[in-house]
């Protein structure tokens, strides 16, 4: 007789009498099958262990805080997230390329009107840094053309500062996070939070905007520990 079926070997480990005498006889004289039955019996003996106890809630938040604060290496590895999410449709919170595409189109429309606006004075006082305004965008809501403020990129010798002066973002729950979305609709980086009110300045590396990260996006982020874009954008505009 050939070796016993896995099912019978497991059956032998559970209850010998449940398996046909033919199979029992074979297994008794077969080292391989006997070893397999023993392995099943050992696994059975280990089943029955105490319940798994979840750690307290705060441990999760601590882990994620550590990870996000992490090393520069960990930080930069985390940034291209939307690309990874794109190939995993199950992930809930990435901006869909579709949405980003629409945003890009909207921003382009907004950009066309910008010629008139470039002469406008920069929204924030220039006292601290007399850099040059190299690009600006007016921000609008996504579902209408309602104005949501302005953003401007100011270049100094070694960095570009994005100045955001938003308005009418609403006072729902959550913090406002500023992102730069690449015009390719696939990449984005978070550049910071609007910590106090609707105004903020964010240094970004030289060349980032030139690489296509031109769409300024302001999202509202729930306090859920999830570092990715919530998918809820309050304002957008393309730097031009």
């Amino acid at each position: 007789m050939s070796h016993a079926e896995l099912d019978d070997l497991a059956g032998l480990a559970l209850d010998r009498d449940d398996v046909s005498p033919d199979v029992q006889r074979h297994v008794d004289g077969c080292l391989q099958c006997t070893e397999a039955v023993d392995a099943f019996a050992a696994a059975r003996a280990l089943a029955g262990g105490g319940p798994l106890v979840a750690p307290p809630q705060h441990v999760r938040a601590q882990v994620m805080t550590h990870v996000r604060r992490g090393t520069p290496d960990a930080r930069s590895a985390a940034i291209p997230l939307p690309v990874a999410l794109e190939s995993h449709p199950r992930a809930r919170r990435g901006i869909s390329p579709w949405l980003a595409g629409i945003a890009a189109a909207l921003a382009l429309l907004a950009g066309l009107g910008l010629g008139r606006l470039t002469g406008e004075p920069a929204p924030t006082p220039e006292a601290v840094d007399p850099g040059t305004v190299v690009a600006a965008a007016d921000l609008t809501a996504l579902d209408s053309d309602a104005a949501r403020g302005v953003a401007s990129a100011v270049e100094t010798a070694d960095a570009v500062t994005l100045r955001v002066s938003a308005e009418e973002l609403g006072d729902g729950d959550g913090v406002h996070e500023v992102w730069l979305i690449n015009v390719d609709g696939k990449r984005m980086v978070a550049i910071g939070l609007l910590a106090s009110g609707d105004e903020g300045q964010f240094e970004v590396p030289l060349g980032l905007i030139d690489k296509g990260y031109r769409i300024v996006d302001i999202s509202v982020e729930p306090d859920d520990g999830d570092p990715t874009h919530s998918g809820v954008s309050l304002a957008r505009g393309e730097l031009a």
Binding site: L52, A78, P80, L81, P227
Partner: peptide, 18 residues
């Protein structure tokens, strides 16, 4: 390097580790 994956891993296996 997907942080949401770490969250999923945590949610699924933290009780085991703990």
């Amino acid at each position: 390097g997907d942080e949401t994956a770490l969250e999923e891993v945590y949610d699924r296996w933290s009780a085991l580790v703990h």
